[in-house]
Design a protein around this nucleic acid. Structure first.
Length: 571
DNA sequence: GCCGTTTTCGGCCCGACTGTTTTCAGTCG
């Protein structure tokens, strides 16, 4: 099986780690990191890009040298330069740099002077008091190490939806200290990434120190990592790290921009500033000492000759070049969504009646709502057989007669069986307005079989949408093995839509896949998969991911008004 | 190692905080 992008990226990252420990040119290290990031976010597999005879040097941050190294990895499955490097620098040293307070310099020193190569050896060195007298290692660092070694920090990311609750609580807690100033969440949270590693808060206040002091006093603080006059870092009991930065009002935009990131986007912007002989930092855009812009992000982008880049696009995936030409996509927004095309009711495993779901959808200002209960194979969810589905169709017809300015669409979420056949006969599917098809079993099929299975399901002309196409559950279940390029191309050909499932623990497709789907000219549907009326609110999480995938209204089928949606569904 | 509407060589984002030091290196974001 061809090597996956994530594996290539991991090899490049390892190379960067070891080069850094070795003391290599930091820009060379960065080049490997950047290449790893580019490959990781690439919508198509590198193997298929190469197979198509395309040139990797077209990708940002990949030149001749890296292109040939990546080609070597794809061809042989090995990275000779990394293997060589591992002979000079033990690969396990990289695990030690993950400890707080220990970076490449100290790890290299530990290796050089104490022969430490692994976490275990480090633990023995600390316990044996062998760090005493080591230059640059004082009592505090030793204590930090002792703590970290006893309980290694788990690399966890938190679901966007759960961080959102924490943000609301923190902001209302800190609000009293900012006076007339502002407070906002930035970082990957503001970029609406599906998961958040740590939370970045920004405040403007006349009394910056007071904001930090208040954060340290927050009841859920488990640890204060750093606490200075303008920056405070704490860890909450939940394990979530919170970084607070306070600046003056005149720097709000610059600080928001800096703290929103991404890091790669910032570096690219600062380089643009440099090219003009200016300097960009979290306090503003400067020509010498003179402030050119700083209070708003808009003004800074404008000065740099760019249109405003929505936070969701700030990943250095080509957005800066487009912003220079004023050619950024006009991203889909929550207000563009006219209905939900995937919800459940008490007819299967939902908790509310069709009427209650319709009521909630109407209250959201929707024009339509598709009722898509499970099919018979999903017995645990009381899936519908053809007979019950026929009764539900009659029930919806009856309800529609009493509704005004709002329409219930007749649908189903039909199981895709192991061989790609559907769980209900065409005779009943043909009576529906739309058919959502989904994989709920046999997640372990090999890539070829899984891909063919889903393409076969799309071969059925009744199938309108493939639900949660990769099957991932964030933090719980990996996506099943798929050739997503084939899925997206097949969807485009058959005019079958691919879903962005907005449920916070799915967000499936994710941003990168959504982008790839658009590239393949497939159309998407953003749906909540709500099993209760309140969960219709999840739509915004789906729209967030759609925006991160560069989608515009034309890419999302449920931005269409009802009449056009109906035409589209008929093909 | 990458990259060029000043450049194919010489740059490469920038600052806060900590700890261990007496002026700064390392780490982090």
């Amino acid at each position: 099986m061809p090597i996956q992008n994530a594996e290539i990226a991991a090899l490049l990252s390892q190379e960067a780690e070891l080069l850094e420990i070795q003391g290599a040119n930091p820009f060379r290290v960065r080049a490997y990191r950047r290449a790893a990031q580019t490959i990781d976010a690439l919508p198509r597999s590198v193997a298929s890009v190469l197979a198509a005879g395309e040139d990797l040097t077209a990708l940002p941050g990949i030149g001749q040298d890296l292109a040939s190294k990546i080609a070597e990895i794809v061809k042989t499955g090995h990275f000779a330069a990394l293997d060589d490097l591992k002979r000079e620098v033990p690969g396990e040293l990289a695990t030690i740099t993950a400890l707080p307070g220990i970076g490449p310099k100290r790890v290299s020193q530990l290796h050089r002077e104490l022969g430490v190569r692994t976490l275990d050896e480090l633990r023995r060195a600390v316990e044996g008091g062998r760090l005493h007298g080591l230059k640059g290692f004082g009592a505090r660092i030793e204590e930090t190490l002792r703590t970290a070694l006893a309980k290694p920090p788990a690399e966890t990311r938190y679901k966007l939806s759960s961080v959102e609750q924490e943000v609301d609580a923190l902001i209302s807690f800190l609000k009293p200290t900012v006076g007339g100033g502002r407070i906002a969440a930035a970082g990957s949270f503001r970029r609406r990434k599906d998961t958040v590693g740590d939370l970045d808060l920004l405040a403007t206040s006349n009394d910056a120190a007071a904001v930090g002091a208040r954060l340290v006093a927050y009841e859920n603080v488990a640890q204060v990592v750093a606490h200075g006059p303008s920056r405070t870092t704490i860890v909450l009991r939940s394990g979530l790290q919170v970084d607070l930065r306070a600046v003056a009002n005149a720097s709000y935009g610059a600080a928001l921009m800096y703290f929103t990131g991404s890091k790669a986007h910032n570096i690219a912007l600062r380089k643009l500033a440099n090219d003009r002989g200016w300097k960009l930092n979290e306090y503003g855009l400067f020509e010498g000492e003179r402030l050119l812009a700083g209070e708003s992000e808009e003004a800074i982008y404008q000065k740099l000759g760019l249109s405003f880049v929505p936070p969701e696009l700030r990943e250095d995936r080509g957005e800066i070049a487009l912003a220079r030409g004023g050619a950024l996509p006009n991203l889909v927004a929550l207000a563009d969504i006219r209905g939900d095309l995937h919800v459940h009711t008490t007819w299967s495993d939902g908790t509310a009646s069709i009427e209650q779901m319709a009521e909630a959808a109407k209250a959201r200002g929707y024009e339509y709502l598709a009722i898509t209960d499970h099919s018979r194979r999903l017995t645990v969810a009381h899936g519908l057989d053809a007979t019950r589905l026929a009764r539900q169709i009659d029930e919806i017809d009856r309800l529609n007669a009493g509704l005004h300015g709002f329409t219930l669409l007749k649908g189903v979420e039909v199981d895709i069986l192991e061989d790609g056949a559907l769980d209900l006969p065409d005779s009943i599917l043909s009576r529906l307005d739309l058919v959502v098809a989904a994989v709920h079993s046999h997640f372990e099929l090999p890539r070829e079989a899984q891909t063919t299975r889903i393409v076969r399901a799309m071969d059925n002309p009744h199938v309108s949408i493939i639900a949660h196409p990769t099957g991932r559950l964030i933090g719980q279940r990996s996506p099943y093995d798929l050739d997503f390029g084939r899925i997206a191309a097949a969807a485009a050909e058959r005019r079958c839509r691919l879903e962005i499932n907005a449920a916070p623990d799915r967000l499936d497709l994710d941003d990168v896949h959504a982008y790839a789907a658009k590239e393949a000219k497939a159309v998407l549907a953003v749906s909540t998969d709500a099993h209760a009326p309140t969960f219709l609110e999840w739509m915004r999480f789906g729209v967030d991911q759609a925006r991160r995938g560069w989608l515009e209204t034309g890419d999302v089928v449920n931005t269409l008004p009802l009449s056009k949606l109906r035409k589209s569904l008929r093909h």
